[in-house]
Write a protein that binds this DNA or RNA. Structure first.
Lengths: 116, 116
DNA sequence: TTCATGGGCAACCTCCTGGTTGCTCGTTTG
DNA sequence: CAAACGAGCAACCAGGAGGTTGCCCATGAA
């Protein structure tokens, strides 16, 4: 799993996560799972306009591979559940990047002020 | 540009952004630009281990297409600059999703407590 | 028990992506 | 000026991603 000690080291892992979220169908699935909790494949299929069941299943496996989602077989169905910690990693990465940006702006402001 | 009135409508746009960030080279470029401000192509090339100049240029164009970055020609060089607003959109989208998650957890907790 | 439904697996196809090379052009710089 | 450097453009290539179909299995409901 992703070691999140220092976000800078985590670039490849973060890229994986971004990549997994970088498809409209997958993003819709994640959003749906976020809103309406664990759901069976068939239900998730509805947020993929005009995509076959197998297509949706493939997307779900992509999400599973990066740990954004996991599942249990319940009788005939397979229930999918969001793993919020992984989403948190993405957020943290963006926050880390943004923080660097903010620091740079601060330094820049300082510089300008000292310069004036 | 991306209308950010309601994050739910914004799914395709958000997916574009995630997708653009979903490549290690591109993510490294964004991180670098965030840390060290506007930089010429050649400098950015350094964060793409073993990729040709043209390769890097292609990545930069991908970032440009989704508005994460823009550039000016300065004499012989081309200077690249981060567009932080677009990064903010990604963050906001994640926050929006997470908020829904949190609400669901609240509702769930309520339900369990009322049930007990 | 029978049949419909949700799912898994595998093969297959197409198109996009990430990457390259080769060539030319303009700008610096020695 | 001449050479070197940064960049743009176009062609090209291999592999992967997203999608489909067909077939079979198990479970649930009639």
């Amino acid at each position: 799993m992703l070691n999140h000690g220092d976000s800078a080291d985590n670039l490849p892992g973060a890229a994986q996560l971004f990549s997994a979220l970088g498809d409209p169908v997958r993003l819709a699935i994640v959003a749906r799972l976020c809103k309406d909790g664990p759901l069976p494949t068939i239900e998730l299929k509805q947020c993929a306009e005009g995509v076959s069941r197998q297509g949706v299943t493939k997307h779900l496996h992509v999400l599973e591979d990066v740990g954004l989602v996991d599942s249990d077989r319940i009788g005939r169905d397979r229930q999918w559940r969001l793993r919020a910690q992984q989403l948190a990693i993405v957020r943290t990465y963006l926050d880390w990047i943004s923080a660097q940006w903010d620091q740079r702006l601060e330094r820049l402001t300082e510089f300008v002020e000292n310069d004036a």
